[in-house]
């Protein structure tokens, strides 16, 4: 019974972590689906979003170490997502667009360059600086505490309010994204561009606008993930995006890069695998196991779990 309870607890930890990975992975997979670019600067956009949220929370939040008003938190999400979306679009316009016809490898190297510029740029900017900053934590919200207590007494598994929030915000954003991609005109255009860019152009779709839009959505999801990450692990610093970015990239590949449900699935698998390894095997092996799963899946199914098997035309 105790083992079962602990297993349940570790699953909760894993799902909370996985929902953050999933959000980041979505950005990778959407951008890849449309321009076939692994956007290595994606993790750093997460950092930008987390800092935007940090500044909103510390300047409007009153007490610097606690978020007392849930509305401020919502405001932080909205502003951070808008700031990051604009950032994402600027990066695309200035760095990736001129290279659209260039070989893929050039684009990839540019992405790595953008990533380094963002990290070190943040280190130099005096308001951010190289030193880690404490991210404000959530003050007790009565309603969530009750939910958390209820779950605890019913199942014996403790879910912290922050974990509840992360999970629901992540799911909400994913549902929203699903709706946008599958049931709106822009979403249809996105799918068309992803399918065949030139044909989409011939059909009168403004490809540049769609690509910008995709980057904006990806970046705003990263910003949301950044704030969730910082709420769970309350520290923000210029390099904070590297590790979650890398893991989310693996998650995207695992689920099948280019596939939106694949990225979500991959994110959850990564989070759960990492946590269960730490919990039941050894915390030293957590990353090894997570990346080992990737290798295993790529050997069995190179296009990822939900990836389409596209045959190269010769």
């Amino acid at each position: 019974m105790e083992l079962l309870q602990q297993f349940g607890q570790q699953m909760v930890n894993g799902i909370a972590l996985g929902s953050v990975y999933a959000l980041i992975a979505l950005g990778y997979t959407m951008v890849y689906g449309i321009v076939k670019l692994i956007n290595f600067a994606h993790g750093d956009v997460l950092m930008v979003g987390a800092f935007a949220g940090y500044f909103v929370l510390t300047s409007f939040g009153g007490d610097a170490s606690k978020i007392s008003n849930p509305l401020i938190l919502i405001l932080a999400f909205i502003i951070a997502m808008i700031v990051s979306a604009i950032f994402g679009m600027i990066i695309e316009r200035t760095c990736y667009k001129p290279l659209r016809k260039a070989p893929r490898i050039n684009l990839l190297i540019t992405a790595i360059g953008v990533s380094i510029v963002l990290e070190n740029g943040a280190r130099v900017i005096p308001w951010i600086g190289p030193n880690p900053k404490q991210f404000p934590t959530l003050k007790n919200i009565g309603f969530l505490e009750k939910v958390s207590d209820f779950i605890k007494s019913a199942t014996g598994v403790y879910i912290s309010p922050v974990q509840i929030i992360s999970f629901f915000i992540a799911v909400l954003l994913m549902v929203l994204l699903f709706y946008v991609v599958n049931h709106t005109k822009t979403g249809k255009a996105m799918r068309a561009v992803s399918h065949d860019m030139n044909a989409a152009l011939l059909m009168g779709i403004d490809v540049n606008r769609i690509i910008s839009f995709t980057f904006a959505i990806g970046a705003s999801l990263a910003a949301a993930a950044g704030i969730l990450f910082a709420l769970n692990y309350p520290q923000v610093e210029p390099y904070m995006g590297i590790m979650p970015g890398l893991k989310a990239f693996v998650a995207a590949v695992l689920g099948g890069i280019g596939s939106i449900p694949g990225a979500m699935l991959g994110g959850f698998i990564m989070g759960i695998a990492e946590t269960l390894t730490k919990g039941f095997i050894s915390s030293k092996l957590a990353d090894a196991v997570a990346f080992g799963i990737l290798i295993l899946i790529l050997v069995v199914k190179p296009s990822g779990i939900l990836g389409k098997n596209i045959r190269e035309k010769v």
Partner: peptide, 12 residues
């Protein structure tokens, strides 16, 4: 950044 798994074990 994530210590939840270890802490869950410790709590047990």
């Amino acid at each position: 950044k994530d210590f939840n798994a270890q802490l869950t074990k410790i709590k047990g």
